[in-house]
């Protein structure tokens, strides 16, 4: 297993590997890697860290990143996916019981490269995440899915953006949220196609389900389209959990808590489907099963 740990003192690779270079604050993937690469990021209180991933041309990689951030910490990340590289990533946020945590990701996807990403944002923390994707080369594509849970008075803000800066690019995001026990969840989904970048498509769905009174949920879809020859769509919905669903499950002996957990799992489940990789899928499913338990 390839394991990389990252904290304020630096980047450590579990065993040296010719396919991966570590340079200062950058992890460079120089060749395709068959097996899953695990990256663990740890930040202490008040720390801030900048990390870059570079995926060289024509590489294929799959990566699981698990980050545990702390109160008042800031995590900046740059991801560059060079021409023709195909990257699958599963990003699990394990930040717990922390205040004012921020994570900013800038992802640049070059010509004919693709990135498909699943975010699991299920732990309890006051958290702000900005996940900003730029499609910088013709034929670049990004597929982003997020499962977010805000529970027990937590406040979570997300900005997920895909900006098209080349022709024939495609961006798709699906953000799913569950809010319970006075949680607050704000999701801004932004799709931007600049003038001249014809043949592109920008699609997004934002859906939040609310379990009880006292929760706040906002799903804000934005599309900024400055070109005619494109496809674009957006959908946003915030709704209450269906009481009939709860009744049905309870009538089979599941407690209210168990029923709600199963409904949460079912609701966030579509996020798993973005991960076409069996290992990552299993990992994601396991994480979801524990959500809100």
């Amino acid at each position: 297993m390839i394991k990389i740990t990252v904290d304020s003192s630096g980047i450590v690779l579990s065993q040296s590997d010719e396919r991966i270079n570590i340079l200062d604050q950058t992890i460079q993937f120089v060749q395709s890697i068959e097996e899953t690469v695990y990256v663990d990021v740890q930040l202490k209180e008040h720390e801030s860290l900048k990390l870059s991933y570079v995926f060289e041309s024509n590489t294929t990689c799959r990566l699981v990143e698990r980050k545990t951030l702390n109160t008042q910490s800031v995590f900046h990340k740059d991801i560059t996916v060079l021409d023709g590289a195909h990257i699958k990533m599963f990003l699990e946020n394990l930040t717990k019981q922390s205040e004012n945590v921020e994570c900013i990701e800038n992802v640049s996807i070059k010509k004919d490269a693709s990135m498909s990403v699943g975010y699991a944002e299920l732990e309890e923390a006051n958290y702000k995440g900005e996940y900003l994707y730029t499609l910088d080369g013709e034929g670049a594509s990004a597929k982003v899915r997020m499962a977010a849970l805000s529970n027990n008075d937590m406040r979570k803000n997300y900005k997920v953006s895909i900006e098209h800066c080349a022709k024939y690019t495609s961006g798709q995001m699906d953000n799913y949220g569950v809010v319970k026990n006075n949680g607050k969840l704000y999701i801004d989904g932004i799709g931007t196609i600049q003038r001249g970048y014809s043949g592109s498509s920008s699609h997004q769905t934002n859906k939040i389900i609310v379990f009880d009174e006292g929760c706040i949920a906002q799903a804000n879809p934005y599309l900024f389209i400055d070109e005619y020859d494109v496809k674009a769509s957006h959908a946003a919905a915030v709704g209450r959990m269906d009481d009939e669903h709860l009744y049905y499950l309870q009538s089979r002996g599941l407690t209210k808590h168990q029923s709600m957990q199963l409904i949460t799992y079912g609701y966030l489940m579509p996020v798993v489907e973005v991960v076409e990789d069996e290992d990552l899928k299993q990992h994601f499913e396991d994480v979801l099963l524990k959500a809100g338990a």
Partner: peptide
Amino acid sequence: QEIPGVTNSDF
């Protein structure tokens, strides 16, 4: 009821 995302066997 129809419950999306929850498989019959899990239920």
